[in-house]
Design a protein around this nucleic acid. Sequence first.
DNA 1: ATGAAAGCGCTAACAC
DNA 2: GTGTTAGCGCTTTCAT
Lengths: 335, 335
Amino acid sequence: MTNYKDIAKLANVSIATISHVINNTRNVEPLTRQKVIKAMKALKYKPNLYARGLAIGKTHTIGLIISDITNPFYPELVKGIEKAALENGYNVFLCNIDYDFKVGLKSIEALISRKIDGIILASSQVDDVIIEEIIDNEINLVMVDWGGSNIKADSIVFDYWNGIKEAVDYLFQMKHRKIFFISGPKQHKTSIIRINDFKNAVLKNKDIYFEIIEGNHKLEGGYNVAKTILNRKIIPTAIICSNDLTAIGAMQSFIESGLSIPSDISIIGLDNIKLTEIIKPHITTIELERYKIGAKLVEILLKRISDKNLPMQRAIFSTRLIKRESVAVCKDDNK
Amino acid sequence: MTNYKDIAKLANVSIATISHVINNTRNVEPLTRQKVIKAMKALKYKPNLYARGLAIGKTHTIGLIISDITNPFYPELVKGIEKAALENGYNVFLCNIDYDFKVGLKSIEALISRKIDGIILASSQVDDVIIEEIIDNEINLVMVDWGGSNIKADSIVFDYWNGIKEAVDYLFQMKHRKIFFISGPKQHKTSIIRINDFKNAVLKNKDIYFEIIEGNHKLEGGYNVAKTILNRKIIPTAIICSNDLTAIGAMQSFIESGLSIPSDISIIGLDNIKLTEIIKPHITTIELERYKIGAKLVEILLKRISDKNLPMQRAIFSTRLIKRESVAVCKDDNK
DNA sequence: ATGAAAGCGCTAACAC
DNA sequence: GTGTTAGCGCTTTCAT
């Protein structure tokens, strides 16, 4: 635990000089600088960012709040954020709130007490209360895919329209006329957005019969909803799911019921998680450019950190259809 | 940013009293305590853990170093660690070193500068140099599945023997006599351990022909190795893989080549990642009680933090075979 | 070009 | 039972 005092003694200068050579914050005689650097090396000096943070009020630390790292949507995102952060000299506190509001609140408190410079909030499960808590404490915040435009904070939003429209058009073109949508939980604004995009896309093509059924964005949800779908009066020939996990769960369920994918039912997911390329049939899905957004999130947050008065930042990421194996031409006569 | 001074002024007491009511570190008149608590609430006081850390030398922060959160082995582990940490008032810095030695070193430096109270090292990809750096800096350390017993640090090790023996016995009983093992990278000690356990298990049952082929513990590795296996003079009837990702990659490869799993080749994985229950056929695998170890890791680390002189801690987690669908009776005549 | 010293928010002797 | 104060490692103003 060597500190400025130690270095100062060894190099025969004052601690102020140490600080200035480390931070390049005023001119110092080349010779003095050398002495200091040599002393630092000799003593294997490691800065104490806590102390620095106390003095200047910045910790070079950010908090990342996610729903659940076990959900395959997140790892890639987390990796991207962490990488970008490290490259900029920041470290990230990871907080899995596990879909639990109380854990979320507790995490926020912990982050605030650790004086993080900002928070990336990538959990749509999160209640308004949590957001208010962050904003009340004047923590820099950037939100991922938070549908609410009433909140004044930087954000990244996904534009689902393009991908969903492509998906519906593609199914139409493959002769599907009975298309269901398994949504996410309706209390999430992002679920509503996807539902509306689906509706609008479907309404553009007349002759399509559609239903919207609520899932939960989890594997089990897709599985269960699929079971109920088979008991309906009208059975769809194709299904678009609000996320890939739902699509995979639904697919498993159909297969268990003796149906074939895609020959009996076509399925399209959303997210393009790695899994969609691993299971068979490979799943046709709507891609979110998830791998790109980590860097962007960090960029936005760091800009905000360095200038509180910046106008609100918002980045939009588009979506597109990726065709794989889970969609086939409809063999139904559509009568 | 309210602090002790503000509270003290409002409550009409000294800052020492504030500290003592917050930390319960000496008796204080109930009435005074009430005044202080009231003032704290009124001012929405949030402690500054940096300042506290500076004063007492503990930050209630730990670093978690992993190879790659995108590898399905990790999310569950990370989640468990983070949960246990939060419950104990700790936050965790996540460091994905992405199989890159330099990133690892940089991460260590960052963690040291942030004065973490300890590090959980869950990456077998990590070089000795990194471990030395941690130990040199007298950082509390607990390692996961690090085969080297020469390093004096707390650790959790997996006992692969039981699971691997069960796997081999099971295959033998299913009449398999040509069993290959696709290993992890041989420079990892944990790979070597698994290889040796496999060898020993196989040698117990005479009549088994076996080969060991090096993979890389990734999907692509399993895929590629499987291709080469089909070109060998002797083709196995069953394969045990050093991890599930390898097993899945190999399975995909075989299926692409027109073989059926398990009727043509039986496959067993290791780790029991969620994926093994999602893809078809569900993969028979050797389970690591991965979900349990997060809490144990945190427990070990916190014990070490609270007492540097504790004797070395080592927890052993067993493994066992989980039978699913990727193994069948060998239809080969074993001639 | 360099140094002395105050102060960041907190803890913990030491005094009373 | 409570207050005063030095000090944790660092930055930065003010002197020199």
